[in-house]
Nucleic acid binder design. Structure first.
Lengths: 157, 157
DNA sequence: TTGTATGCAAAAGGTTTGCAATGAT
DNA sequence: ATCATTGCAAACCTTTTGCATACAA
């Protein structure tokens, strides 16, 4: 039976204000399509693909083209208000929550979900001077098997 | 100038023996194609795609088809001797090193490299009973900008 | 007004699938 | 002998591109 977590930290997706401020700073026009895509993405807790987002937006914005959704998402990533979620295989998944958070990845079905874990938010950063790599952030990927992909006989090699 | 690390832990890719043992355990035939693909992958330190591996194998195995490389890699993942690497973007990348290690991901070019960091190898596992998720392992993804993608003027928004 | 974004359609990857022939056990 | 794998070609799905039009600043 599922346990309940006492203090569940909050997930705060990018706001429209942050988005517009960044557009202005970079001289990019704030279009209705960009607003719509960001709003739709920010409203979700999962990590939809461009196509899923396009599909979800069809009712409200029937004139929004698939191509534009792809392009807008790429722009939002460049603006830093959206991140791409690394997803082995399949399509690119996006997330409008740019705060520090971690991931649960199912090795079998590939499903990925967020995990806000304050205990993992202050890891010491490794010394990457040898690689000449400038670390901006990190996230911990826990992989294993999700509920639906775990057999009742719970052993594997 | 690059620093030198005193004790660099070793990267030990899957051996042919482990592979064959697992094949036998699961009743899968050990084919020359499977050997060839695993050997080629295990010999590399990067994380090639199926296509890159196929290209690399062309000289030695001109009769090995692209389709087979895709299928073999999927089989090796099922056998647990190879892992898919989370890679932002298009193609799936594979790794024959299944030991605990971490990643450096460039936000700009997407290049990904391994990072063996003993200091990060014993993190406490979070309680995922609520999600009913069985954690098998984890890896820390550090993202930021690699040498080639970092401008000399080292500030960003 | 000026430059960028959008929409369409077509192209370009990357990956999967159906089927007959081959190969491993 | 038996069943899974391989190779080929075609299908499929996701993403990108060229170009004329529409829109934000």
């Amino acid at each position: 039976m599922p346990l309940r977590r006492a203090k569940m930290p909050v997930r705060r997706p990018t706001t429209m204000e942050e988005f517009e401020a960044r557009c202005r700073r970079q001289g990019l026009p704030v279009t209705s399509q960009r607003r719509a895509v960001l709003r739709a993405l920010a409203a979700r807790e999962d990590h939809p693909t461009a196509d899923q987002l396009h599909e979800a937006l069809r009712r409200e914005h029937p004139d929004l083209s698939r191509t534009t959704v792809y392009r807008v998402l790429e722009t939002l990533v460049r603006l830093g208000v959206v991140t791409k979620v690394s997803h082995p295989g399949a399509a690119v998944h996006y997330d409008a929550f740019t705060g520090r958070h971690h991931h649960l990845v199912c090795d079998v079905c590939g499903r990925l979900s967020d995990l806000v874990l304050p205990g993992f938010d202050a890891l010491p950063l490794p010394d990457t001077r040898a690689q000449d790599f400038e670390i901006a952030d990190y996230s911990v990927h826990f992989h294993g098997r999700c509920r639906s992909c775990r057999p009742r006989t719970s052993r594997n090699a």
